[in-house]
Design a protein around this nucleic acid. Structure first.
Length: 278
DNA sequence: CCCCAGTCCTGCGGGC
DNA sequence: TGCCCGCAGGACTGGG
């Protein structure tokens, strides 16, 4: 499930396409519903073909392939989307192919098993509208304790639920929210309004530490997941998980049994001994 | 404004 | 053995 570390790994995996020219774009037929993409493929192709790729960036959980025209191809992988330079996990779910010239890479693909993701080509104005402040908080890799306190300090929501709000802080998903709160020693059900300035700082520091560590290990590939890097290799941060997916197993810090609860219909994992309610 | 349930989608594992 | 159901959750929508 791509969150910030996985999407950042995708971005880095596409480094070798910078400087190449797009010579063809194909939206691939899938046996079921095609994924969402805009604009219509004819317009998409006309605006992309002939363009040189100038950069590959990340905004929150999206990858932006920037073109010399200042348009950007925006990949939004959601649950099961992958950016690939090589053979896919299953060719059935290849959704887009971009053929390249002038570099070391012949093509890159967007692959998406469940098809909840999307591929868009956005003009500068459309990019500004899609990513305007108000829709996305500061990137989780740079958000400070004060940023979090300012945006969430008055909220009555449980802190774990609030960390998933991309308008508050951008890039955290269900898996890393649990990991971050364990590192910060904060109970996931603690209401934001009761969190101290010092605790917000601890959460921000844990966020940066956990996400950077996960990037170092190229993200988490879960047993039933599909996440891979651009060369179709597994990440390895799943071997470092403190709590996520470890219900009933011992906490690596204190040995207590990791608990699983459900918050707003999503699983939350935590250590009842390390993570206090205050 | 704030918050939450429902929705999309496919594969997998538990239960019977 | 095979089938059914629930679960996985990112981002968006609609409604209280």
């Amino acid at each position: 499930m791509p969150e910030l570390p996985e999407v950042e790994t995708m971005r880095r995996g596409l480094f070798d396409i910078v400087g190449s020219k797009i010579v063809a774009v194909e939206k691939l037929r899938c046996p079921r519903k095609p994924i969402l993409s805009t604009p219509a493929i004819g317009v998409f192709r006309r605006r992309a073909v002939g363009q040189t790729i100038t950069a590959v960036d990340r905004i929150a959980k999206r990858v932006l392939v920037r073109l010399e025209s200042d348009d950007a191809i925006v990949l939004e992988p959601r649950m099961t989307g992958l950016a690939l330079l090589t053979d896919p996990p299953d060719p059935l779910y290849l959704r887009f192919r971009f053929d390249l010239e002038g570099g070391s890479v012949p093509s890159f693909w967007y692959w998406d098993r469940r098809g909840l993701g999307n591929v868009r080509l956005l003009s500068p104005d459309e990019q500004a509208a899609a990513f305007e402040s108000g829709k996305l908080g500061p990137d989780a890799l740079v958000a400070t304790g004060d940023d979090l306190k300012l945006r969430l300090g008055k909220s009555r929501r449980a802190v774990k639920v609030a960390l998933l709000d991309q308008r508050a802080v951008a890039g955290i998903g269900n898996l890393y929210a649990a990991e971050i709160l364990h590192q910060a020693a904060i109970h996931p059900e603690l209401r934001c309004e009761r969190i101290t300035r010092r605790q917000w700082s601890a959460i921000a520091e844990a966020t940066i530490a956990i996400l950077n560590e996960a990037i170092k290990y190229e993200g988490s590939t879960l047993g039933d997941g599909t996440y891979r890097n651009a060369l179709n290799k597994d990440g390895s941060y799943q071997n470092k998980h403190r709590v996520y997916g470890r219900a009933g197993e011992p906490c690596r810090q204190c040995g207590a049994e990791i608990q699983r609860i459900v918050q707003t219909q999503r699983s939350t994992f935590f250590c009842p001994k390390c993570q206090k309610r205050r």
